[in-house]
Simulated assay, not measured.
Amino acid sequence: MCNDREGNLLTDKTMVAARWREHFETLLNRENVSASTNRIRISDDEAIKELKNCKAAGKDELPVELFKHGSEQLHEILHRTLLKDDIDIIGIDRRAEEKAFVPFKRETARIGPTISIIKTKYMIAGRIRGSNSEVGVEVVLGGDKFEVVEEFVYLGPLVTCDNDVTREVKRRLAAANRAFYGLRSQLKSRSLQTKTKFALYKTLIVPVALYGHETWTLREIDRRAFGVFEQYSAVKKKMASGDLV
């Protein structure tokens, strides 16, 4: 689903695909402006100029002097790095996807970032697993070959060709179990108050289990899986009694 130009909700698949095509055509076919005219040199940023020298570097271990006095080549590398992102191109068929991909590839080449052929995957949504034999193991779009997959991890959640939420639920619960056991020493510590342990559970374990849940359509088997997880960990009961194992 998406909105049209007036903000009206579109639910028809054909209209949704047409709206996305219109959006990307508008986005990618803007007036060609040289990337150099839009690029802001990091050394020209006022906030960077005000930073003091001889200070300890942060977690990236990059000293401030590198940003203040770096060469044009450094600024070019940072510009390319800062523009990296994950992109999802959707089309109703191969032709529509290629029509969206080719101008996107052209624009990324113009402004700096490159498309990672190895990391980019191609998946046909709405297919039963094992039904991609007629497509083959790879497809060609815009002269590039991409691996055909039935599932892949995109921005954290697992995306599958048959929209099997159960597989993602199992992944989330397995990750939550690892988070729970990673915090066992803190959760069973008698030095921490019960409310502190509840806070750890709610902030470091529950979000792991429910990451991306806003997009899920749960079946009864999935709901039971979450019930088993909470019952198995027995976090609330053990926290209240102070008997964590």
Rank of each mutant, 00 (worst) to 15 (best):
T81K: 07
W216Y: 07
M15C: 09
D222K: 00
P63M: 03
H23S: 10
D44K: 08
K202T: 05
T37Q: 12
D144Y: 10
G142D: 04
R30T: 07
L204V: 02
I77T: 07
H75D: 15
V149N: 02
K197V: 02
I117Q: 13
V208S: 02
L78I: 15
P157A: 04
E6I: 03
E107L: 10
E214P: 02
S185V: 07
K188E: 13
E22H: 09
A17F: 15
K195C: 14
A209N: 00
L204E: 05
V102M: 05
P113H: 05
E46W: 11
H213I: 06
T160M: 03
D162F: 03
E147Q: 12
S191M: 07
F24H: 05
E46M: 08
G112N: 06
D45P: 00
V148M: 01
T37L: 09
T114I: 04
N177H: 13
Y181L: 02
L244K: 03
V153A: 08
P103I: 02
I205F: 03
S133E: 13
I124K: 14
S43T: 09
L27S: 10
S116T: 04
Q231I: 00
E46T: 12
T114C: 07
E65R: 07
F180L: 05
F198L: 15
C161H: 07
Q193M: 09
K237G: 05
N132S: 12
R224E: 13
F146I: 01
T26G: 12
E76S: 08
A179Q: 01
L83M: 15
K99M: 06
S43R: 12
D45A: 06
R129W: 10
A18E: 14
S43Q: 10
E50C: 11
A174C: 09
E230T: 04
Q186R: 07
P207I: 01
Y201K: 02
E22A: 14
Q186D: 10
A100F: 03
V140S: 14
T14K: 15
G227L: 03
R21I: 04
C2D: 14
T215L: 06
A96L: 06
F67Y: 15
L210Q: 11
R94H: 13
F101I: 03
G143H: 07
I111M: 04
E22V: 04
L158F: 02
G130H: 10
K170L: 13
T26I: 08
D45H: 11
D4T: 01
V137G: 08
D85Q: 10
K49I: 13
A174T: 13
E220T: 09
T37F: 10
R19F: 09
G7R: 06
L204C: 11
Q186E: 07
L244I: 14
Q73W: 10
T37I: 09
G136F: 09
T203F: 05
Q231N: 13
N3L: 15
G212Q: 01
E214K: 09
R223W: 05
A100E: 04
